[in-house]
Every structure is written in structure tokens, then in C-alpha cells.
Design a protein around this nucleic acid. Structure first.
Lengths: 180, 180, 180, 180
DNA sequence: CATGAATGAGCCTTCATTCAT
DNA sequence: AATGAATGAAGGCTCATTCAT
């Protein structure tokens, strides 16, 4: 059953996400992932060649590529695109699991060429594309502003501010990088 | 000789910074730190009760508390304070060692109460103080802008942009969060 | 195979008994137990959570609870019960392995609550029960005599006397604490 | 100053007795002995060639040779000698420190030829001498009774009985091995 | 005599990975 | 497909011992 195979693979990945988020990629033993997923340790090595392969799968999902692609798929531009990106980003990373995973992922990025590439893709190519759709051009100023936009969001999830609501934060941020 | 004791302690910490930056706190064996420092493994446990204690020492130095304090110690305010903070921040984290250490530190922050507290101190109390010195007040808008400022800097060091120089980046960023 | 699992577990325990008897619980490295049992070091931690758990298992077997229970299970009383106890005790502790293990166990008893309890059980509750079956009552005099009986046996195995045979010793001892 | 040298040596030994009694000879680190004695770790190795030498010194004092010699030095015989031995033995080993030390000593006896010899001396030669002074002869029966006497005392200190006072115990014991 | 920094061997334990069933 | 027993390579840490000062 290819169906069942995919189900189990998915179950393992999701368990791994929870476990890795809590312990970090290297402190989380595969045995814990197995227990969390309700399968045997051996089975994990049937679905994934090695722990690294599982780490890579989880790490990929922890990056905001999906958020970016979702918004770029629409026809939105300017302010509305910015709001789409900011909203979906916060939706995802307000979840402590994704927040932690992303931080762990970024910290090990240099160890995995695959991850390096994905991060570069996001920070470079995608950033240009977004700038063009938001501002209509992608000069230095626009690129800096886009980075500033995402940096600010990252900083928000790193430590959610006490007295500022999600929406207030986003509103001020958008105004700051998009102008009045 | 108290002198020599401090020298060795420092030598160990610096070796640990290099090793931890490259491998991450948990993948870096203490034996590697020892070799890098040119001392025996046992000696490290003479100067630090445990690996965790060494991690904590290194992690503390990886945060930008020194950068912030240095600039707050001066009389600068407004735009000039911002430039001080941005400049010193980039000076520090343009160094790949500090960049990596900070990322590793942020990713393990939840495991060490001491680190949590230090990060909270930076993201909350210090942020208010900075906002007051930069803008003359610390309302929601100012706080968001300060976070945006530091988030942008973080994002810069995460992936240094290809075509934008350090100074250009900083100039545009400052203009963005400080206005004309 | 539950069969095989029990076999291996037992094989490890028996190897541990030999090794612990010779070196003492704390000087005997787990690696030596592994070699003696013909398994890998890691496997021991599959069957026992920690070295302490293995120590506890071995230490339990080193106490004379089995001897006492075996004799109490019968209908013997008076002199015959005494002879049963003495005979089985000497059978067990004339074996240098058990002799050494018991001495090691008694010396670490205070470190392990489980062991404390087992020893108390033997020295207090069981001693009363034995006194009742031997003498028909368990007043102070009978308790002292029972302790004297077992103390003498312990002293026998501590240093087996040169010119007195096992049976002679037991005969005189029984006469001493049971009267004519 | 030979005076001072002896003082310090003694201070170290006494600290070692306390520490070894609590942790056992092999789990007690020399550093703990040093701290307890209020001297540096290095100094202990000036007074004792090795840890083993310190262990041997402490172990020797933990045996009841002094008790036996003290009583044999007097002119006592028969019942009175028995009471002297029993009384002094209980005086010494009612102290938990000596009780523990003796148990630890007995458990490691086989590792140290010196200790083996001392224990043999007590259990064999001294036992004969005592039997002769107590009973006027040292046949098999008397030897067994002397061992029974000391075995009983050991058993008393192993677990002090709840409802029987020291003096009651000794009285009954003496009556048992010495007859009415 | 005395200190305490320094070493190195060894121990317990964890864990990714393999493999027989 | 699935299990879990088995292995072996490290890793963190302790500690007896040495030695420069």
C-alpha cells in the first residue's frame, strides 16, 4: 500500500518535528522520535536512510518557503502582498514548534549543503522576486527593506512582545517598510 | 599565579568559542576544545564544573549585550545612537564565529534559564531604554521599530547580501526606521 | 524470543556475580562484566537501566533470604529447622563467590534503600519468625540466640577455621544456641 | 617538627576515617579527604605514598585488634574476660563510623595481603589465646564458641535490635556461650 | 612542607546504525 | 514491512597521581 507507506512516513516526520523542536536536532535521540511516532526504532531507518535524512526533511519544512510561495502564488502586490506574507509568517511561527525548529535549523544550516542552498534561495532569489511584487522594483533600497521586514518578523517570534498584539505589530511594521 | 589562572581560563573559553561556533554546542566534544586550547581534557573540568558551565560562558559572550551597553554608555541619542548600535553590531557579527555562536545560542536558549533571562533582558528592558534614547519615547511604535532595527541586522548577518555594502545597508536601514 | 531474552539477562547477571565478587561492586567495570558474559558493553544497558540496577539485582541474590525462605517453607521446627538453616547457609556461603558478594553487599547496604529494607526484613521480621519456629516463642533471649546463630555462621565463612570441619562446627553451634 | 608531622598525619587519617566510613574506600575521593582534613590534596601524597597506603592505615584501625589486646593485657579470665571483650567491642562498633569502616574493610580484605594477614591473626591466633583465657582450654568446642561470641557481636552492630538493650544483649550472649 | 594546577587513564552511559527474525 | 536485540564508537566526567612553584 503506497498509501500506508506515506501515512507512516508522515507520522514519523511529524513526531520528529515535535521531538526535534523540543530537544534540538542533535540532542533528540531517534528512539524518542520512534516512541513519539508509535513505531519501532528500526522502522525509522527503513523510511529514512539515516538520522541526517530525517533532520533534512524536518529542517526543510521549518523554513518559510511555503509561506512565501503561498503568497507569491496569488496576484497580490504592494501592501496587500506584504500583509499576506506577514500574516502567514506569524501564523506559522507563532506556533512554538515551528519557531523552535526554525531557530534550530538556522543554527545548523552550515552543516548541510542542502539547507544552505534553501536558505540562500529564500534570502536571495525569493527576496528579489518579493521586492519586485511589493515595490515594483528591486533596487538596493527595496532589498534592504524586504530583509528588514522579515528580520522584524523573526525578531517578533524570537520573543513575542508583551504589550503589543500581533496585528498592531504587523500594522506598524508594514507602515515602516512600506511607507504611509 | 592568579595571572596564569586567568590566562588559561581565557584560552579555554576562546578555544571553546571557535569549536562551538563550528560544530554547535552539543556536537562539539570537550576533547576538541581541549586540543584546540592546548590543554588536557581534565583541565577543562578544573576551570569549569561541567560542559554546561562552559557553554553558558561562551553563550553569554555571543549575545549583543556588550554592543548595546557600549553604545548606551555614551551620550549619543537619536540617529547617532542608532548608527553606533548598528555599526558595532555589524562589527561583531560580521565575524562568522560570533554569527554562528549567536545562532547556536538562540537555538538552545530555552534549555538554559540563565540564557532565557539574558535574552529577555535584551529584548525587553534594554529595548525600551534604547527606544527612549533614540526616539525620546517608548510607545508601541518605537518598540516595534527598534525590534525591526535589530531584526534587520540579524537578517543581514544571517546571509550577507551580495550587492549591498555594509555601510549602504546600514544607511538604508537607519533611514527606514528613523525616517528622513 | 522471550526465552533468549531471559537467557541473556541471566548470563549477564551470572557474569556480574563473578566479576563483582572478585573486584567489589565499584571497582568492577561494566566492561569487564560484558567481556565475562560474552556480550557488548552496550547490551548490558539494554537489559539494565544502569549499573546500579545490576548491582541491586546481584546484591539481592547475595543475601540469605532464599536460604531462610527455603527452610521456613518446610514444616521443620526446633533443632531440625536450625540444622536446615545452618546447612543451607553454609552450602551457599562456603562458595567464595557468594561469601564475597555478601560481604560487599553488607558494606554498601546504606547506599541503597532497597538493600537496607531487605536486610532489615531479614534481621528483624524473619528473625522473629525463625525464633518462634525454633523455640516456640520469640522473647528477647530467643532473638539474641538466633542472631548469635547467624552471626556465628557469618563468622565461619569470613575465615573458615582450619581444624574444624563444617559439620563439627555446625553441630557445636547448634548445641550452643539450642541447648542439649 | 616531628610533633607537627605526626599531628597532620593523624588529622588526615581521622578525616579519612570519616570520609571512608561514609562513602566506602573506593567511592571516596582523596580530594574529599583533603577538604575534610583541611589540607591540600597534594599534601596527602606527601604523608602517604598512595591512596592504598591511606586505606591500609584506616582499615587497620577499623579491626578489633585493639579491643582484643586491651582485654588480653589485663589479668581477666573466664566470664570477666568475656564481658571485657564484649563491652569494649560494643563501645567501639556502636559508633557508626567504626561499624561502617569494619564492614568496608572486611569486604576488601582479599585485595590487600596486609589486611588478610591481620584478619587471619585475629580469627586464628588471637582466637585460640582468648579461648584459653576464657575457658582454660582451646579445643574445637571452645574455638567454635569464641567465634560464635564474636559473630554475635558483629551481628548486633550490623543491625542494632530494636527492643533489646546493649547490656541485655551482652548478658544473654555471655550466658549462651559461657553457660550458666 | 604545602599548594593546587595539570595530566591521563578509565568509567558509565548514550545513541546511531545494523541485522536476524 | 516491522521489530527490537545487539554493537561499537564516542562523550562527559571523575579521580589518583605528579610536579612546578
Amino acid at each position: 500500500m503506497t498509501r500506508r507507506v506515506e501515512d507512516i512516513r508522515e507520522k514519523i516526520i511529524e513526531a520528529a518535528m515535535r521531538v526535534f523542536a523540543q530537544y534540538g536536532y542533535f540532542r533528540a535521540p531517534i528512539s524518542l522520535v520512534a516512541r513519539e511516532a508509535g513505531v519501532s526504532k528500526g522502522l525509522i531507518f527503513w523510511y529514512f536512510r539515516s538520522k541526517d535524512e530525517l533532520i533534512l526533511e524536518v529542517a526543510s519544512r521549518s523554513l518559510p518557503l511555503d509561506v512565501i510561495n503561498d503568497c507569491l502564488k496569488t496576484d497580490l502586490k504592494g501592501l496587500e502582498l506584504l500583509n499576506c506574507l506577514g500574516g502567514k509568517y506569524l501564523d506559522k511561527y507563532t506556533n512554538p514548534m515551528y519557531r523552535n525548529l526554525m531557530l534550530h535549523t538556522v543554527s545548523i544550516e552550515e552543516l548541510y549543503p542542502t539547507l544552505r542552498d534553501k536558505l540562500r534561495e529564500i534570502c536571495e532569489k525569493r527576496m528579489v522576486k518579493i521586492a519586485e511584487r511589493v515595490y515594483g522594483k528591486s533596487g538596493k533600497e527595496e532589498i534592504v527593506k524586504m530583509r528588514t521586514f522579515f528580520g522584524s518578523l523573526l525578531c517578533y517570534t524570537l520573543r513575542v512582545p508583551r504589550n503589543i498584539s500581533r496585528d498592531e505589530y504587523l500594522e506598524i511594521l508594514v507602515k515602516t517598510v512600506y511607507g504611509a
